[in-house]
Nucleic acid binder design. Structure first.
Lengths: 340, 340
DNA sequence: TCTGGCACTCGATCCGTACGAGTGCCAGCC
DNA sequence: GGCTGGCACTCGTACGGATCGAGTGCCAGA
């Protein structure tokens, strides 16, 4: 029906105006600023229906309407097209990310870039270890019984772990240990590392066996341990601008961002299909994120997902622009990390 | 004179009360809460003098007094004793920091600990490279002409750097390169690394010379480059609580914290003598830090300074407690890193 | 089905008043 | 000479009432 269609136009206009002005929007202003072809009175009727359906709400009786989470959801799903980035913005992304010196550099540039493009808090997950493969293992003797194990993955990530051995290790055994570990694990997906241990123990010379056992145990532990997934976070200063959208205080949100595990779950639960994922307000199912939305996407090549990245901001955000930025950056970062 | 002494007591009382209540403090309240042995009227006279000398100020005519930066300075220098930590707090520090798995883990635990003890934003500088020594160098071939250089220092720090060589590198040359680099640089202070390059080039076999030249150039560049000094920051959520002390907005401060270079300068300019350094308000000479104080201290053993750590908070902070916390944590972290 | 008109609601704003915390000054006391 | 109690004064805050206006819901008519 024609006026179902118009009601959606009204909702879209409400979202757009509210996002840009932060004032509850009334029927009169709506009629003036958008070519809806009908009078304020008609719009009021539409608004009454939209409110009844739960897409908008009024803060108090004599105020305009504000989109609800449900309203934003409909807007994102059906009323907005992801806005393509301008050529200048694309160039900015390339210029910003090219020339990174190492993995950390790539990620920290990414996070700054995202924060700058979206004016929100940006979050990038380190490439997940379990999906990478071992490129090289290095063992360095730090003290008699202390070894430093350094793992280099094919995504350029470098992991380190201190190992306390039960007894002192002979200096000449270290080289043997290194060779053994490398021949056993080289090229292995980290997720499969555990299954290689029995073979390794069989082939190890008897005098090294206990040493190999404790080191490989520590290695597997490091790799499998999911808590090791780290985040790079940036653009927190943008929260100060968005403070008006978080009535109580920024505190819970800032705490959640420090409590990395919460954000990690949000960012890492991405659709592997290469689509941008938007979680609006209560959909995040976390108290500290009341009034906040998360726009995220996985990065990596089609056959190998590496991790997730995204932004966190108030529900009252410019979804089309932010979704476009997240998508563009995720794709470009995926390319860069696939190359190296 | 006796009443000079009393005026200082009055200033101390004003600072203490103001820090704990955040209300401008008046003469009557002061006389009630502190045993100054004189009447409010007398205190008023003292306050008039203190104000004239610039130690305190009144926000408006009918309000109590508030310490100025100069007043806090006097308080820190002459009126407060660094408050020793309780045995329980000491134990908490040890429990919190022991059992860290690697350098990053030590630093991130440290930052969380400091933030928790002081209720302020905590900052820890990575151990400065140039004061460390090379423990091991690892070269991994990532692609034909691409090498990943991994540096392990005696402070447990692991640095990585991608090197793009002008031509493809033969697989068997990589091992030779590794051996050459290690024999040349092993045990060298990073600051001295540059001076070792000529010798290295002389001893290198002719066919490797150009390769060694480009790799060692990149190595020296990585080591000397001071911008590589990184920070770990935590406790940003504490700023939300302190928001009342930053009248305009938290924005400039949050931005300064992201603009790591500003904070880095503050934290790294520490007295090497092992004393806590306090910078109050305008002493920081940075616009974004108006109303903010920095409490910092170097860590490392007596003969080898590694870096700085500290906290950033409103000028209205509990200096004695915070100075004690910074000092205790800096000492303990220095111990831990010296051991490894 | 849309529109103009109208009465109504209710938060925001403004203004005037009262209150009280805090001060500076002064005369008197030890 | 220094301390104290008393007192007049200032000025920011809290409170209450009046006004304003944006926005609404409803209804009759086109």
């Amino acid at each position: 029906m024609a006026h179902d269609e118009r009601r959606l136009q009204v909702l879209r206009a409400i979202v757009q105006d509210y996002v840009s002005t932060n004032d509850p929007v009334g029927s009169k202003a709506l009629a003036e600023r958008h070519d809806l072809g009908v009078s304020p009175a008609t719009i009021r009727n539409d608004m009454a229906v939209l409110e009844e359906q739960g897409y908008i709400a009024q803060p108090h009786t004599s105020a305009g309407r504000v989109p609800t989470d449900k309203g934003y959801r409909l807007f994102v799903d059906r009323l907005s097209a992801v806005k393509p980035l301008s050529a200048a913005e694309r160039r900015a992304i390339e210029r910003f990310l090219d020339g990174a010196l190492d993995l950390y550099d790539v990620l920290s540039r990414t996070v700054r870039l995202l924060a700058q493009l979206t004016h929100q808090v940006a979050v990038v997950q380190y490439p997940t270890l379990s999906r990478s493969a071992v490129r090289h293992l290095e063992v360095v003797q730090v003290a008699g019984s202390r070894l430093l194990l350094v793992l280099i993955t094919d995504t350029g990530r470098v992991e380190q772990r201190l190992i306390e051995c039960p007894v002192d290790v002979a200096h000449e055994d270290v080289a043997d240990l290194r060779a053994l570990l490398n021949s056993a694990f080289n090229g292995a997906k980290l997720a499969d590392a555990g299954s290689k241990v029995p073979d390794l123990l069989d082939t190890a010379p008897p005098n090294l066996r206990s040493l190999v056992a404790s080191v490989s145990a520590a290695l597997v532990e490091t790799l499998v341990e999911p808590g090791e997934d780290r985040l790079v976070i940036g653009g927190t200063a943008n929260l100060a601008r968005a403070a008006v959208d978080f009535p109580g205080s920024l505190r819970p949100l800032l705490e959640a961002l420090e409590e990395q595990v919460v954000v990690l779950r949000l960012i890492s639960e991405v659709d592997t299909g290469g689509a941008v994922l938007v979680r609006i307000g209560e959909e995040n199912a976390h108290e500290a994120l009341t009034g906040a939305s998360v726009v995220s996407m996985g990065y990596g090549s089609a056959d190998r997902a590496l991790g997730g990245l995204g932004i966190v901001g108030p529900t009252r955000m410019d979804y089309p622009t932010n979704m476009a930025a997240v998508r563009a950056v995720a794709r470009y970062v995926g390319q860069i990390l696939a190359e190296s």
